[in-house]
Design a protein around this nucleic acid. Structure first.
Lengths: 333, 333
DNA sequence: TCTATTGGTTGGAGCGCTCTAACCCTGTAA
DNA sequence: TTACAGGGTTAGAGCGCTCCAACCAATAGA
């Protein structure tokens, strides 16, 4: 359980510790003779460099910290894939930590990540207050994904929720729908832009917006539908705030004896793997998640290398994915 | 961008660096006067301890490394919750890394985790070869979740897949089913025990097992059903290898004009959040995932504290969750 | 009164590494 | 012959921290 150090390798190879260090860092100014001797000794001892000691001594880090607000949401997994891809290309490692959707736990996760003195930090949809983010940003480069910020030292990567909602409304209108309700995401991240986009698109089409208060869960979607039915206010099409909500809405509609899309069309948001399941086959709005990750990592590494000072605000275009839950009012002809 | 050190705090508080260290570690042998002075200075400077320097100096670590083979699978999120809970209770932090389902990437993730010299390692359903795990286990305590091992220095936490399959079969038999097919998980982790449990339970009931080769995806589940229909070999009940597979099977059954559970009953495995969606409402087998995480963390910390040498093999009992996809053959009366 | 004892505090060594400056060659130019 | 350059190598300081031994009152016991 005791790992060999550089000293051990140096001793065994008959060279100095500094030389071993050079070999480990792939320096060109080492003779082939010594290099192979060192590598052989390292191999025999099962030596691998101590990342922390290295980073302490060099006062640099090749680690990027990633804080995922909710590990349960597969959305983030794809963003992490994008981050990982870029980071690895450029010789950086990532360490992940999770906030479990609770501000307190998230704060702790942040602390923990910071204590490793990573080169930079990427926060995925964090729920901690902006001041906490600002404080972190004083110490190292920070990039926010799926959350906006006005702090000038922080870069952000988001999708254009207004445009996404507009895409959905345009799609439904082109199918012939006139009564389209929006099940709203309430306080949730990105709920605001989606709602605004919906309202603007409806008005642009000369239609009356109908915003129903709801949440990012399937139970909430079902509840919203039931209240619409009770109020006799059911439209011919629904734009949900996200896929979970949409699936809940569909269940409630079916429970009420209505068919989707024949009686009511439903559009989700996020294009989660759930939406792609053939049993669900939900028309939804896709966000380029891996691209989020790649852009975030790129932006962060630019700051790490001090190539840029001004903040960057990426706003990516979502796209419509048509599946089986939308059709003209009255059902597919 | 330059973080304050202990020295800075000591200077500001008018004490020695060693005293600051004591305060930071919550030592009782510090007067209240100094303690508050130090904490005040630290607060003002925005100081937080440097985890790497600490771990280097103390030759100990309060970090547990967690390798998640697939971040996309929400299964692991709950296991991580369990790990996190126990770790935090006992003053440990966790850092997560992901293998992205690829052995090469997983190996790299392992290397990276190891380079931080954590106190121990928890591997969630790793796909790297056993030798790589054995090598890691020579350097620090290792616990495996959802993967078995015969290495005596490695602890394991698994669910009893045989029993889970048996529960499902017993449930279907008690509903009156006699022809029950199993859509097999092939090479997937835990597919073996589930298949064995299914076969044993069928035989115990005097029924003929019908194993259909399939995989852990919804597309594979749908394919298996179609081949059963083509061969005119469709039974009255299906036990899928996991929830995704079951959802795919349901889609294919509905596409073929069959109703679930009226014409065919379907049981999944894993009780993912997918199964709980009201639109899906899948009868399935639940694994105590958070408990997996808690037990894994407990086992690891026991080894970290050198309280135990012999390996531990946890085999947890799964349980049946009855929802809406199972009924007596011919449908609910 | 002097010596123990105890609670609180501190300097210094050292964790495993990197980095700078100095060093030692050997080969080449003056 | 001396000077110089430059590739290859090394000693030593130091990164931010912990830990040990020593130290310093202040009090208690004899």
């Amino acid at each position: 359980m005791v790992r060999p150090t550089m000293e051990d390798v140096a001793l065994r190879a008959g060279v100095s510790r500094a030389l071993v260090s050079l070999v480990m860092r792939g320096s060109p100014k080492v003779s082939e003779l010594r290099r192979s001797a060192v590598l052989k000794a390292a191999e025999e001892l099962g030596y691998s460099p101590h990342a922390m000691a290295r980073s302490l001594a060099s006062r640099t880090s090749t680690v990027l910290g990633v804080m995922v607000s909710d590990l349960h949401n597969a959305f983030f997994a794809e963003v992490v894939d994008g981050i990982d891809e870029v980071a690895r290309e450029q010789g950086f490692d990532i360490i992940i930590n999770t906030g479990g959707r609770s501000p307190a736990r998230e704060r702790r996760a942040l602390e923990s990540l910071l204590s490793f003195r990573p080169a930079g930090l990427i926060l995925l949809s964090p729920v901690v207050p902006a001041t906490a983010i600002g404080k972190a940003a004083e110490q190292l480069p920070v990039v926010l994904v799926a959350r906006s910020s006005r702090v000038s030292t922080v870069d952000t990567v988001n999708d254009d929720g207004e445009q996404g909602a507009r895409l959905a409304v345009d799609h439904l209108v082109s199918l012939g729908h006139k009564r389209i309700a929006h099940l709203d995401g309430g306080e949730g991240t990105q709920a605001g832009p989606r709602r605004r986009g919906y309202v603007a698109a409806m008005e642009a089409h000369g239609l009356v917006p109908q915003v129903v208060s709801s949440e990012y869960t399937d139970a909430a979607g079902a509840r919203a539908i039931r209240s619409l039915i009770d109020d006799d206010a059911l439209p011919t099409a629904i734009l949900s705030c996200n896929d979970f909500n949409a699936v809940g809405a569909i269940s409630a509609l079916e429970d009420a004896g209505l068919r989707v899309p024949d009686d009511v069309s439903v559009v989700g948001y996020d294009n989660t793997s759930l939406a792609a399941l053939r049993h669900v086959s939900l028309t939804t709005i896709d966000q380029p998640r891996a691209e989020f990750g790649r852009l975030a990592a790129d932006a962060l590494l630019q700051r790490v290398r001090e190539e840029r000072i001004e903040p960057v605000r990426h706003l990516l275009n979502p796209s419509l994915v048509v599946r089986s839950t939308t059709a003209p009012p009255g059902g597919p002809r």
